[in-house]
Nucleic acid binder design. Structure first.
Lengths: 260, 260
DNA sequence: TCATGCAATTGATATAGATCAATTCATAGC
DNA sequence: GCTATGAATTGATCTATATCAATTGCATGA
């Protein structure tokens, strides 16, 4: 489980802009998630302050954004792409504990280490905040802390839905639930960014192995459930990952409820 | 899944005390979790304000503290006893998503409904806060909100550990992990309250059915794992629930890591 | 003390999903 | 276009856990 890759590209709206101290940097002005992410609760003045400590970073699909052991340096919000959060046991077993879509926040607030890995599923762009400085901001901007708190509560709700799925659902229910949940989540993320999207057609950015690590199943079982869903005429799949949900009501019926 | 019981006993340090407005009520003065719970971050002045909206409530073992559907009326901190949080599917399947020990907070902040049930495992005493009033307090007392945020982050960490357990662990690992985790959690709660306790001897306040709902197993499988652990000489059980861990290192080795 | 009833254990069997083993499919490089 | 390589599918078998069925244990009340 090594980081499989070159250094991420760093490009900075960083620190001292020559325009002086009170201008919103272009990177924020055109930010995909300016209006819906953590920053959405900030007025211009606060945002200008926050902006000074941020950097934009890009990761290629498969790159590790942070890991288990090493002390956490940065928090981040996802501007673009999909991130998986995953726990890895010494013996190699792996449990994916969540997916991050724009404008999700990643990193464990108020702690020096994460207890999981964050890995880019697609090419990913994030906006990073150095840990110490960001913690300072949290204390001085109650609105920021409040927003982060709400995002955290949503994550907790999600984690608990996922627990229900992992503990009680059959393989078919799990796979169906993943498709329904992933599509909802992706569509929602797109809507927040005013990106046109069809909730029933999407690219499932996870390999079969990644899906099985998420659902607590094996690759083969996941594959068999996909075949079953195709056979039942509920979905079609092109190029392994391009999903088309044909009968959403029936799928939702099988999934019982959505895990996201 | 009905509430199986009489109305909980209500006793109030409530509202207008005759001593005037600026005295700490006796109930808070002798509170078991005054120093470690949500209130621990409040100075006397804030606590006096908060105290005015609180009520002490008692529930018998088995009673429902709140449920799934009905709009949430109150938040609470646990003063005494153990609470289980659980999700129930229409078809009767059930997944317990966490346990609450003193001084844990229960209830979903900033939302009108919980998406789970809270059920008293033992006789339980809680300190309740009416939702609306408490939300007002959160906005006006940043320290209170911050503390609640930290508690929520801990819960999220726990939920994710549990996901790892549900998705990847064998039956034996799950049962062992539960025993190790439950004992740690209980011992920790006792320590916070300066209650003497032996981490390796405790009453597991869950029926086999409740354990199986927690671990995503059946009653029979849970029972077999207990028998196996006894056979290996790692634990003894008296009266079905009184657990004595004989070889903690070996148990921790099997559990791999603790789910709490 | 004995019946009653529910919880836990233990045993026998069934099965969903895991594991092992070929194929088949898709993408990348030549 | 063709070959090589890893991913996905499909098939055959195995196994951990579920399910079904007694049996045992323990608490309650007559």
């Amino acid at each position: 489980m090594q980081s499989n890759s070159a250094q991420p590209k760093i490009s900075g709206q960083n620190c001292e802009s020559k325009d002086g101290d009170n201008v919103l940097h272009p990177t924020c002005l055109v930010c995909e998630v300016r209006a819906c992410g953590l920053c959405s609760e900030l007025n211009n003045e606060s945002l200008i302050k926050l902006q000074k400590i941020t950097r934009t970073r890009e990761y290629k699909a498969g790159e590790q954004i942070f890991c288990d052991e090493e002390p956490l340096q940065n928090y981040a919000t996802i501007k673009n792409g999909i991130v998986k959060l995953t726990k890895i046991l010494p013996d190699g077993r792996q449990q994916t504990i969540g997916l991050g879509f724009p404008p999700d926040f990643i990193g464990r607030a108020f702690k020096d280490t994460n207890s999981s890995f964050a890995i880019a599923l697609t090419d990913v762009t994030v906006c990073t905040f150095p840990k110490e400085l960001f913690n300072g901001f949290l204390s001085s901007l109650p609105k920021l802390e409040h927003k982060l708190f709400e995002l955290t509560l949503n994550e907790l709700d999600q984690a608990r839905e996922l627990m229900l799925m992992l503990g009680q659902m059959s393989a078919l229910e799990k796979v169906t639930g993943l498709l329904i949940g992933f599509s909802k989540r992706l569509h929602h993320s797109n809507q927040l960014q005013n990106i046109e999207s069809d909730i029933n057609r999407f690219e499932l950015q996870l390999s079969r192995a990644e899906i099985s690590d998420f659902l607590g199943l094996t690759i083969e079982t996941v594959s068999r459930q996909f075949s079953l869903l195709k056979q039942k005429g509920l979905i079609t799949i092109e190029n392994q990952r391009q999903i088309h949900i044909l009968d959403r009501p029936e799928m939702e019926e099988i999934a019982g409820h959505s895990p996201f």
